[in-house]
Design a protein around this nucleic acid. Structure first.
Length: 345
DNA sequence: TTAAGGTTCCGCCATT
DNA sequence: GCAATGGCGGAACCTT
């Protein structure tokens, strides 16, 4: 990543945001976490990203100091009038799924959208976006708990509760709270390329791209008696993924027969032990590849796949590309653009 | 990529 | 009578 500033400097204009000003909405009952991640991605000084990086401002929906979750008071930079200058408007979680959206806010968002602004909602912020009518006929997502409420509030919106975010071009929506980070990183990836998104993700100490949808985070009923017995074993399995584990050994540790262990495991996790181990090992392998571990044999041994051939087999089947291709893809988007332009020159 | 041996998973049924 | 458990056998999958 040493050459990142140069790469960004030479980046084609099509990859750059047309208008770098990001405006975050602030209102009474503001969700502090979602406002915070918006600030973290777009509001922190990042001189290493070059002069074209986002500029950040906040716009108050209502006058005066506003209350945010956690007892904070917030004074915004400007009012709704400032939205007309923004290239992107971020709407953190709204104060309630049934809370009315002020007419002035709806009008300001529609006007900004017509002027070319991208509208981005996190979690229940989608209810503000839906009120504008700009989501009608489009796919959108929100926290899985609010999916039915969104369908009821705006039947014309195609609600997909099983994804982390939906990009419909000029309107983008994300699932609950932390999925907002995935959407904001996706926006950075679209605007500045994969290497820039990876760099921001690394500074956040998070994965640059999470696979899978919300279903994996929806609570499953856990049987009170046997489920509790397996929880320590799952922790132990996570801590020694690099070692081979047999069903017989795991069942013995859980003090159950193999047959009962398989039943209890599926009830608790929704997966078989083999599938659970494979998924956990794939995530470990991805982290090792992203961290720059050199040989695939080493990645395979440290993630528990035993051999590079076995790692390739599972990785390709789960992720869709081989581990080497996955590692290359972390940088190829931006560097490839740069190389192609140099070739053309 | 393929093949073969080993392992896992699950339906079924008997037992507790 | 019901629910939980455990063994068996075969198909599917994994590993080398």
């Amino acid at each position: 990543l040493a050459g990142l500033p140069t790469i960004i400097e030479n980046m084609p204009k099509s990859l750059r945001p047309r208008n770098a000003l990001v405006a975050a909405l602030v209102y009474d009952g503001l969700c502090t976490f979602e406002f915070g991640i918006t600030t973290e991605i777009f509001g922190l000084p990042r001189p290493e990203m070059g002069a074209d990086w986002y500029r950040f401002t906040t716009c108050a929906v209502e006058p005066g100091p506003l209350r945010a979750c956690g007892g904070l008071s917030v004074i915004a930079d400007g009012t709704l009038d400032a939205l007309q200058h923004a290239g992107m408007i971020v709407i953190p979680g709204w104060r309630g799924v049934d809370a009315a959206v002020p007419d002035a806010l709806v009008a300001a968002l529609i006007e900004a959208h017509q002027a070319g602004a991208r509208l981005v909602s996190i979690c229940s912020g989608v209810f503000v976006l839906a009120a504008t009518g700009l989501l009608d006929g489009k796919r959108a997502t929100t926290h899985w708990r609010y999916a039915d409420a969104l369908r009821a509030a705006r039947p014309a919106v195609i609600v997909d509760p099983d994804v982390l975010y939906v990009d419909e071009g000029s309107v983008l929506t994300s699932a609950g709270s932390a999925a907002g980070l995935d959407l904001l990183l996706h926006i950075v990836r679209c605007d500045f390329g994969a290497a820039a998104a990876n760099k921001v993700a690394r500074r956040l100490v998070m994965s640059p791209h999470r696979e899978g949808g919300q279903a994996q985070f929806i609570e499953r009923p856990v049987p009170a008696r046997p489920g509790g017995r397996l929880a320590p074993l799952l922790d132990a399995m996570r801590e020694r993924l690099e070692r081979p584990m047999t069903i017989a050994e795991l069942a013995r540790q859980a003090a159950m027969s193999e047959r009962t262990f398989l039943r209890r495991f599926r009830e608790m996790t929704g997966m078989t032990p083999g599938a659970w181990l494979a998924a956990a090992r794939i995530e470990t392998a991805k982290a090792l590849l992203e961290a720059g571990v050199a040989s695939l044999e080493d990645v395979a041994l440290r993630s528990g796949f035993g051999s590079a051939a076995n790692l390739r087999h599972h990785f390709r089947r789960t992720v869709g590309v081989g581990p080497a291709a996955y590692r290359r893809r972390l940088l190829v988007d931006v560097i490839g653009e740069n190389d192609a332009r140099q070739d053309a020159a």
